Computed example of a mutant assay.
Amino acid sequence: MAIQTPRQRLANEKWAKRNEKKVGKPKTKAKDQPSKSPISKPWVIALVFLLIGGGILELVSLLL
């Protein structure tokens, strides 16, 4: 990485402040926040119900 002169450093800080006003501050991720599941709980329950229910119906049809 190239060494910055004090003039370059000031110019970079000035540009970063202007850019931050224009774009907004970056959002920081909280490390202690648990990751959110991509599928909601009701959908998981519905899928499990369908899979288990289908399996039970298949077993009943095989036995009868």
Rank of each mutant, 00 (worst) to 15 (best):
L63Q: 08
I45A: 10
V23K: 15
P26D: 06
Q8D: 10
V60A: 12
P42E: 06
K17V: 10
N12L: 06
K36D: 04
K31N: 07
P34F: 01
L62I: 07
G53D: 10
A30L: 15
K22E: 05
N19K: 12
K41V: 09
Q4W: 01
G55C: 08
P6N: 09
K27G: 13
V48I: 06
A2G: 03
D32R: 13
G53P: 00
P34W: 14
K27Q: 10
N12D: 04
V23A: 07
L59C: 08
G54M: 00
Q33R: 12
Q4L: 12
L47C: 15
V60Y: 12
N19G: 04
K36T: 09
Q33S: 06
K27C: 08
R7G: 02
P42S: 03
V48Y: 06
L63D: 09
V23M: 12
P6A: 09
L59V: 12
R9D: 07
G55S: 10
P42T: 01
W15T: 09
G54T: 01
P26S: 02
W43Q: 04
K14Y: 03
L51Q: 04
I56L: 14
A16P: 00
K17W: 09
L63W: 13
R18E: 14
S40P: 00
V44L: 14
P26K: 14
T28G: 02
K36F: 05
D32H: 13
F49S: 11
P26T: 03
D32K: 08
I52G: 00
P26M: 11
V44I: 08
Q33H: 11
A16S: 10
A2Y: 15
G24P: 05
K29P: 09
I56G: 08
K41D: 13
L62H: 09
W43Y: 07
D32L: 06
P38R: 11
A2F: 09
W15K: 13
E20R: 08
G54D: 01
Q4C: 03
I3Y: 02
N12C: 12
E58C: 04
L10M: 13
A46L: 10
W43K: 01
N19F: 07
F49G: 10
I39N: 07
K27S: 11
L51F: 07
P6Q: 06
A46K: 00
V44D: 02
K22T: 15
V23D: 15
K29Y: 08
E13G: 01
A30Y: 12
K22R: 12
L51T: 07
F49C: 11
V48F: 08
K29T: 04
K21I: 04
I56S: 01
R18W: 11
G54V: 03
R9T: 04
V48W: 03
S37R: 14
E13D: 15
Q33K: 13
K14N: 06
L10Q: 09
K14R: 09
T5M: 01
S61T: 13
